[in-house]
Design a protein around this nucleic acid. Structure first.
Lengths: 144, 144
DNA sequence: ATGGTTGCAAACTTTTTGCACTTCG
DNA sequence: CGAAGTGCAAAAAGTTTGCAACCAT
């Protein structure tokens, strides 16, 4: 990331390093607010606007990407190095987000390239439904 | 839609009818604002908040669904009756949204049910990349 | 030195909410 | 009639922006 930014003539600042530290080991999803409060907990004070600006920057550089979760704030996740990674399942009852690790889109992407001449650089898949727990709860609710 | 709402003990009002008329024949995407201004153009005045409330309601009833497009406002589309329908491709250069009509997730959904016991009721797929036009433009740009 | 970067506060946008009034059933 | 729905205006919530000070290179 440091090199990517430098190559683009941008600077590697203390703030960017600190944001980077927050999101790099992160397998989870986060909003600008999330990062801000995690830093505040560590007594590190960075302006919220800096975080917004940094996330936008990193999105443009394909270091983070938005995930279509959360109807209020913009949720991001750190892009994975290898291949295409995981997908999401969103339980419409409890709101939980689960990750799926199933290889699935490789073949489809080839078809799309052939059929539509669209060059794919990334994708987001979100399944909606009921997680195991909620599915069973919903069943027993309906028996009442 | 009328029956769906009535069954849930909700009322079929003039406003809901008018919003319904706007979105039903719609193959496109729309925001609350879009619907509002289309109605205003037809000299129909409905409070914006009513539209927000209605869209939320319809989302819960699976009549419309959000699509992860547009970083500013919430974009919806009307759910399709049959099967699972289409998916989206978002060109990161020109911003155009293209629709893909490729059957793809049926098999994967079965796998997910078995592997994760997650009951899928819908899904959203968004591919990011370059459309044919932009891909060729980008190529020639890099030769300059 | 110089131009990208930050912090702060103010501005903006989108979405939500309280409440009195209206309307469907 | 009574409960659900609407409109309006005010409030929230999230995000962006202008600008002076700051600091990597």
């Amino acid at each position: 990331m440091r090199d990517t930014l430098k190559k683009a003539g941008m600077r590697w600042t203390k703030q960017r390093q600190q944001i980077y530290d927050e999101i790099i080991d992160e397998t989870k999803h986060y909003t600008a607010e999330d990062i801000h409060s995690k830093l505040v907990n560590k007594k590190i004070f960075i302006g919220l606007s800096t975080i917004y600006r940094t996330l936008q920057l990193l999105e443009g550089k394909n270091i983070v990407k938005r995930v279509p979760i959360g109807k209020d704030a913009t949720v991001y996740e750190t892009c994975e190095e290898e291949s295409h990674g995981h997908h999401h399942m969103h339980c419409s009852r409890c709101g939980k987000i689960l990750e799926i690790h199933v290889d699935m889109l490789e073949d489809i992407e080839k078809i799309i390239k052939t059929k539509y001449d669209f060059t794919i650089t990334g994708h987001t898949v979100m399944f909606t439904g009921l997680c195991s727990t909620c599915y069973h709860k919903a069943e027993s609710d309906s028996r009442k």
